[in-house]
Computed example of a mutant assay.
Amino acid sequence: MKLYNYFRSSASFRVRIALELKGLPYEYLPVHLVKGEHKQPGYGAVSPSGLVPTLVNDSGEHLGQSLAIMEYLDETHPRPPLLPADPVGRAKVRALAQLVACEIHPLNNLRVLKYLVRELKLDEERKNAWYRHWVREGLELYERELAQLPSSTYSFGDTPTLADCCLVPQIFNGMRFNTSFDGLTRTMAAYEACMKHPAFQQAQPSSCPDNEA
């Protein structure tokens, strides 16, 4: 398999975690978002939407969108599972994952932040304040959801799930912008448990070949 991705992309990070959790080898193909490589014609042939990540499977099929890719990996390589065995558990984990991927991340991805600066003329501090506000608000919702679940090592249960694959990259990016995580007790406990797991360590940006310190 091949993974077109960018070391700092939250969506790419999610898929790298899933691949590492499942012990699946892949070819790492960097696409530098800040330099605009995702807008070049060559990448357009890989991803019509021009987004990362894109997974190319062994049959040559091109798959986009991190949640879809991770569910594909879970269906084709079911061990270890990223979703619980029961329908209610799967729905709860998907809800947590989508809370990050659909409620927090879209407001703060690179193209949104660029629009705030270039078109709406926000200065750096106001842009960062926007980022911190929406990340913090979203993670407070995540914390409320966890408070309704039984105590566990990770977000849901005692093994990493799709939810953790989404949570950890969001925390990483929140740290870059000095987001406050005070009071997010269960959320940060799940994050810290994940970061002790080898798969999360191997997938993190600092371990990527295109990492820029």
Rank of each mutant, 00 (worst) to 15 (best):
A18V: 00
T187W: 13
V56M: 01
E125I: 03
D164H: 06
N178R: 13
L83Y: 07
P209V: 11
A213G: 13
G174F: 11
W130D: 09
P41H: 14
A11G: 11
L99S: 14
P48S: 11
E137S: 13
S47C: 11
I69Q: 12
C208Q: 15
L99N: 11
Y4A: 12
Q148T: 09
Y26S: 03
A189P: 10
L116T: 09
K22N: 05
K196S: 07
Q201G: 06
Y191D: 02
L141R: 12
R79Q: 14
Y142S: 08
P80E: 01
K196P: 00
A199L: 13
M195R: 13
R176L: 13
Y43S: 12
L167H: 11
E75T: 09
Q98F: 11
S207Y: 05
H32C: 13
L122P: 05
E143K: 01
P30T: 04
A45F: 09
N57G: 05
L51E: 07
A18P: 03
H38Q: 13
F13P: 00
V117K: 08
L73P: 06
E145Q: 06
M188R: 15
T179G: 10
A189D: 13
P209T: 08
R8Q: 14
W130K: 00
Y115D: 12
A97V: 07
L116D: 02
E37H: 15
L139K: 04
V56Y: 00
D58G: 06
L162K: 00
I69F: 12
L51W: 00
E37M: 14
M175P: 03
L55M: 11
H197G: 09
D86A: 12
F181H: 10
L73M: 01
C208R: 06
M1C: 01
W130T: 01
L83S: 04
P169Y: 14
F13S: 07
K22E: 04
L33D: 07
C102G: 12
S66E: 05
R136C: 03
S180F: 07
P30D: 07
N173P: 06
E125S: 04
L67N: 08
Y142W: 14
F172Y: 15
G174E: 11
M1E: 03
Q202Y: 03
R176T: 05
G64V: 10
I69P: 04
A203I: 03
C194M: 12
H38L: 13
R136W: 03
V100K: 00
E145T: 10
G60C: 02
T179C: 09
G183K: 04
L113F: 09
F156A: 01
S9V: 08
L3C: 05
D164P: 09
P209R: 03
L67W: 10
C166S: 10
I69W: 11
Q201L: 14
L149G: 08
E103G: 08
A45V: 04
E20H: 04
P198K: 05
V168M: 02
R8I: 10
R94L: 08
V15H: 02
P30W: 04
E124V: 01
Q170Y: 07
V93S: 01
C208I: 02
L141C: 13
A193M: 06
V135A: 10
R111N: 03
R94Y: 12
K2N: 09
K114H: 10
E119A: 12
G89M: 06
K196F: 00
K22G: 03
L113W: 06
R14P: 01
S66T: 01
R111S: 09
G157M: 11
F13E: 03
S9E: 04
M188L: 15
R14G: 05
E20K: 02
